Amino acid sequence: MRICVVGAGAIGGMLGVKLALSGHDVTLILRGANLEAVRQNGLKLIEEGGKELLARPARVTSVIAEAGVQDVVILGMKAHQVAAIAAELPAIMHERTRVVTMQNGIPWWYFHKLPGAWEGTPIRAVDPDGVIAQSIAVDRVIGSVVYPASEVIQPGIIKVIEGNRFTLGELDGGDTPSIREIADAFKTAGFKAPISRDIRSEIWLKVWGNLSFNPISALTHATLEDICLYAPTRELAAAMMREAQTIGEALGVQFKVSLEKRIAGAQAVGQHKTSMLQDVEQGRPLELQALVASVMELGRITQKPTPTIDAVYALTSLLANTLQQHKATLRLA
């Protein structure tokens, strides 16, 4: 297949390397020093056990239109970066091209193909101007949940921290030839790629932790283990998660694990810095809209209160604005 990874950073690049090495025609969309490094030396992936893989994709560019027409487009960037490139995507699609969305948080398409009172309702927190929905036909979209953790340790080199599972799902819960073909491609490349008949419940299971642990870590500079072991922040995370669970259940979501088990799972990850804390340390924009504001928006839609989530969002949003205004980073020595 012709596969384009738009935003081939830590996760997108991980996919790109292994899909290319398994025989697919892979194009990577990159920027800056990462782009130049991959052009010159290829893209290296260091797996959990230390094994190094080197791929030289078919095309490496910063211009989406140069990718040519693709069978699959994987959106590997963060949620707040999608709107900026959405209008460029139709140029690389044919009538059957599928788009795999790999953003954390509540996706822009959440209520599309979801029967009920809110069917088709936009999520303004992640698509405020509607440009994503206008540019990507909902029939093209395949939802996904990203479970691996990896990081770009230097331009052109990605290190896997843990995990290799990418759950995929049609928005209507269907089982189609195209999603099976994509899942098979992932599996051949060495990933676990189960197909979910309820992708929204899978998304909520990850959102459940992200909406709490990410902003708390950004504010406190604590790791997942530290947050869970310190009683006040453990209870703060639990309070945010209880509010979110009430919203999810009002939307028909089934939480397949208990709240305590979800917190225990985060604690078991150990001394790991969340992506939002890493963004604070490196002066990058925070994923607050997709991870937190979107859940607040769903709370308003379902008329469920979110006082704890609102308070943590306000504090973290102010931190993000302050860092952006001063073009600053914040890191413990």
Rank of each mutant, 00 (worst) to 15 (best):
132 I>A: 01
147 Y>D: 03
19 L>N: 04
164 N>Y: 13
5 V>P: 02
134 Q>I: 01
47 E>C: 12
77 M>H: 06
285 P>F: 11
48 E>H: 03
116 G>C: 07
208 W>M: 09
97 T>Y: 04
116 G>F: 10
209 G>A: 09
285 P>S: 10
294 S>W: 00
98 R>Y: 00
227 I>D: 03
247 I>A: 10
218 A>P: 03
49 G>T: 12
182 I>K: 02
187 K>R: 15
4 C>F: 01
129 D>A: 12
2 R>V: 05
269 V>F: 13
255 F>K: 08
35 L>I: 11
21 L>A: 07
159 K>I: 02
48 E>V: 15
320 A>P: 00
227 I>G: 04
281 E>V: 06
84 A>H: 12
98 R>A: 07
233 T>P: 09
9 G>R: 08
78 K>S: 05
12 G>L: 11
74 I>M: 14
158 I>M: 07
202 E>A: 13
127 D>S: 08
206 K>L: 12
17 V>W: 08
22 S>L: 11
64 I>K: 13
303 Q>S: 14
149 A>S: 15
20 A>P: 01
88 E>L: 11
187 K>I: 14
83 A>T: 02
233 T>E: 06
163 G>R: 03
308 T>V: 15
89 L>F: 06
103 Q>S: 01
299 G>R: 04
314 A>I: 10
7 G>F: 07
306 T>I: 04
172 D>N: 15
217 S>F: 11
270 G>C: 13
103 Q>V: 01
292 V>A: 10
98 R>T: 04
241 M>E: 11
127 D>W: 07
206 K>M: 12
296 M>C: 08
